[in-house]
C-alpha cells in the first residue's frame, strides 16, 4: 500500500518540480532549493563576463565547496563553457601564501554552475584572503581574471586541522571535513580531504595516508557501531561512513597512518547537530 502510493507520487512530484523549475525561469539565479549564498561577484576585466561566487554557507576555515556562475555581461545569459582556475592567496603583511584548492573538473557547467573548492587554512583575522578567478570564456573566446576579497570565519568547531608528520617531523598535512555537511541520526557519508604542504604556494592532494576514524560522544563517553574508516578515492578525497546514534555533540577521533607508521593521532573534528 505504502509503496504503491509513494513511488508514483514521488516521481510525479519530482518530475513536476524539475519540469516547472526548468520552464518558468532560466535558472540564472542559484536554485532556491539548494539555497546557495553569494560570496562575491564582479567583472573579469576584458572578458565581457560577470563572475559570481556561491557557496552553501559563508566562507569558513576548512574545505569550502564553491560554485562559480558566469554570465555574459551583455545578455545576462549564463556562460556554460569556460576554463575556470582558482587562485586563493592570503596576504599576512610579512608574507603571503596560497591554500589547497580544486579547480572545476570540467569546462562545462553543471546547471550553469562550475563546482570547485577552496580550503582556506586560516581565518581572515590573521590576514586578507583574495580569491582570484581566472576564466577563459569558451563561448566568446576571451580570457581574464576577477579578484575577490573573501571574509573567512573560523567555525565554532574546527573543520580542518594541520599536523607535522611524526614520520619525518617536517612534512605538514592539512585534513579537512567535506561530509557530512548535513548530519543525521543514522548512517552518514564521511568524506575527508588531505593535502600536503609542498611550498607556501603549492598544496597538492595526498593519497598516501590511511585513516582510522572513531566517533564518540565525549559528554556521554560512548561511540557508535558499524563505522567505516575512510579510504582514498581520488584527488585526496577519503570516503567512509560515520554513524550517529543520537543528535548532539560528536567528536570524530582521527588516527592517520603512512604505511604502518602513525603520522598523527592527536586530532579530531567535532560535529554538533
Amino acid at each position: 500500500m505504502k509503496k504503491f502510493i509513494q513511488s508514483p507520487l514521488y516521481i510525479i512530484v519530482f518530475l513536476s518540480v524539475v519540469f516547472l523549475g526548468s520552464c518558468t525561469k532560466d535558472a540564472v539565479e542559484p536554485d532556491a532549493a539548494l539555497s546557495y549564498i553569494q560570496l562575491a561577484s564582479g567583472y573579469a576585466a576584458g572578458t565581457s563576463t560577470h563572475v559570481e561566487v556561491y557557496a552553501s554557507d559563508s566562507a569558513f576555515t576548512g574545505y569550502n565547496k564553491l560554485y562559480i556562475l558566469l554570465k555574459d555581461s551583455a545578455t545576462g545569459k549564463p556562460v556554460d563553457r569556460a576554463v575556470v582556475t582558482l587562485n586563493p592567496t592570503m596576504d599576512m603583511t610579512t608574507m603571503s601564501h596560497a591554500s589547497p584548492k580544486e579547480n572545476p573538473v570540467s569546462i562545462t557547467a553543471v546547471n550553469h554552475f562550475f563546482p570547485c573548492s577552496v580550503s582556506f587554512i586560516m581565518p581572515s583575522t590573521a590576514g586578507k584572503w583574495t580569491l582570484g578567478v581566472q576564466i577563459q570564456n569558451l563561448e566568446n573566446g576571451k580570457s581574464g581574471t576577477a579578484s575577490f576579497t573573501i571574509n573567512v570565519k573560523a567555525p565554532a568547531s574546527a573543520k580542518m586541522f594541520s599536523f607535522k608528520s611524526l614520520a619525518d617531523n617536517t612534512t605538514t598535512f592539512f585534513v579537512g571535513l567535506v561530509e557530512p555537511s548535513k548530519p543525521i541520526v543514522g548512517i552518514n557519508d564521511l568524506e575527508l580531504v588531505v593535502y600536503k604542504k609542498q611550498s607556501m604556494m603549492l598544496f597538492p592532494a595526498d593519497s598516501s595516508l590511511s585513516v582510522i576514524m572513531t566517533p564518540e560522544m565525549p559528554t556521554m563517553n560512548h561511540g557508535s557501531p558499524n563505522n567505516v574508516d575512510p579510504v582514498h578515492t581520488i584527488n585526496g578525497h577519503y570516503k567512509g561512513k560515520v554513524n550517529f546514534t543520537m543528535t548532539g555533540f560528536w567528536r570524530l577521533n582521527l588516527k592517520l597512518k603512512s604505511g604502518s607508521t602513525v603520522v598523527d593521532s592527536t586530532h579530531y573534528i567535532d560535529i554538533t547537530f
Binding site: 541520526v185 560522544m217 559528554t219 556521554m220 546514534t245 543520537m246 543528535t247 548532539g248 555533540f249 554538533t272
Partner: peptide
C-alpha cells in the same frame, strides 16, 4: 524517544 540534557550543549535526541 529519549532526550538528554547537558548544560551548554544542544540536547541529545534519539528514538
Amino acid at each position: 524517544s529519549m532526550t538528554m540534557y547537558q548544560q551548554g550543549q544542544l540536547p541529545m535526541y534519539m528514538l
